[in-house]
Design a protein around this nucleic acid. Structure first.
Lengths: 251, 251
DNA sequence: AGGGCTCATTGACCCAGGTCAAGGTCCGCA
DNA sequence: TGCGGACCTTGACCTGGGTCAATGAGCCCT
């Protein structure tokens, strides 16, 4: 169980330190931070660390929902499919994201790693136990779910009523706002470098557009000097406020 | 404080029985049903009943979120607006619906009564107290929020990837499935009478379409004998399964 | 360093659904 | 019982974004 792990989609790290949670860089960003340091051993005991290679699906829509996940590294795309293959990306799960909130018996979406991803995996019963031991965790999950709901409603507005240009602008602004507090933001026209771990196709499926429209619209925004596109996985936001106005339909 | 209430948008019933919750017909459908009968007096003490006339807005997007609501009668539409007036209806809140899950400081959406509506209104602090007294209520809210999230993701798929025909079919099936267990459903081609308390405009804003497209698409479904339209606020589903196939993109 | 991937861009054309406009239906009220 | 207004339907036309197709740009791998 030591060699031959390279090509496997999911790698479970069973020899892990009891202090993983204590030294976990994602704790500050996760629901876990409501649990006291002294209790972190219980948390680590309840979960295993799983590594997922890019392109691999670790949650499959419709499968029995046996596990919950907390992302500690990398970004994944969450999506739903129609029988004929049409895809809707419902979100991108980065570090700190809690996955599996759907309390139903089967997963409502699939999750695929865009980068090398690490997650803490909890079984349904283990999580139930943690929730009973730490009521604060349950409160935190309710808060997280509520915020997700607000984000989802915002996305419905985007998908139902915004133009392609407004959708791309909204996407860029949302990505820019998730940058972990870079100095000099909010100060009008400071350039921001946005990381895009997903492909144009993923962006299209997230915004309810086609690859071509995403590409064309970004080219247009570049021609208008709102953005720069140094490479396929980065965009520089040259005029945050102007793009924000586009995003909210005010331009 | 007894006369002159007729034309007021919101009417607060302050003289209410301590047993309102005990006799509340909506309890079985609400989060409240997790609270034991013997504790219902605490619940009624924490809330007031508010009546809302059709067409009146009782939650305004952006206003400080001071209250939470539990719907005990009537249907409301929940929506978000763009500055230029484009509207996205994010859902319809019927009896038993818990409103205000967004734990942020201001409401993320507006709510307007479509019919005469009654809600139980809790202040933020009173609800906090109830959650501390009844942990089961917190668990229930997490469950409700999680289910909402699943519904929201389904709606994103609809808005991002479905055709007008598929959207209307999905809407009709969702409405049909919420009928409180009428006998003989699921048995293939049994006609179901769907109530539509909202206008074509509301449906359009919910499905990300225009009034005209909603009207045209329903006319087409009628011409194809999938549905009947006895009047503007009712639709009879003649072929549930066929319409379900349209809804899921399989026809 | 070049062949063969996958991903992105760009152009030409098309069509589902939006827009504009003209009635139709229903209902409450005098 | 007929007037006014809100809502719905239908038709003719238009357009934003989809479709199809060709080309370009990275980037492994050998």
């Amino acid at each position: 169980m030591t060699a031959m792990t390279r090509a496997r989609p999911l790698v479970i790290d069973s020899h892990r330190d009891a202090n993983v949670c204590l030294t976990c860089g994602a704790r500050a960003l996760s629901v876990c931070h409501v649990i006291d340091e002294s209790d972190l051993d219980k948390l680590s005991a309840a979960s295993v660390t799983v590594s997922v290679l890019p392109g691999h699906t670790f949650i499959q829509e419709g499968d029995p929902a046996e596990h919950f996940f907390n992302v500690t590294a990398g970004t994944s795309k969450l999506y739903k499919l129609l029988p004929d293959g049409r895809r809707q990306v419902t979100g991108f799960a980065g570090v700190g994201y809690f996955l599996g909130l759907a309390v139903s018996s089967s997963y409502a979406f699939s999750a695929e790693a865009l980068e090398p991803v690490r997650v803490c995996r909890f079984s349904r019963t283990k999580l139930r136990g943690l929730l009973d031991d730490f009521p604060a965790l349950e409160k935190k999950l309710l808060e997280v779910a509520s915020n997700e709901l607000v984000v989802a409603q915002e996305q419905m507005l985007l998908l139902g009523r915004k133009t392609a240009r407004e959708r791309l602008a909204s996407f860029l602004i949302a990505r820019a706002n998730m940058i972990p507090h870079c100095p000099g933001r909010g100060a009008a026209n400071v350039a921001e470098r946005i990381q895009l771990p997903m492909t144009r196709g993923d962006i299209a499926d997230y915004l309810g557009l086609t690859i071509e429209t995403v590409s064309r619209t970004l080219s247009k925004l570049r021609a208008e000097k709102f953005i720069e596109i140094p490479n396929n996985s980065e965009i520089v936001l040259l005029k945050h406020d102007a793009v924000e106005d586009i995003a909210t339909g005010m331009a």
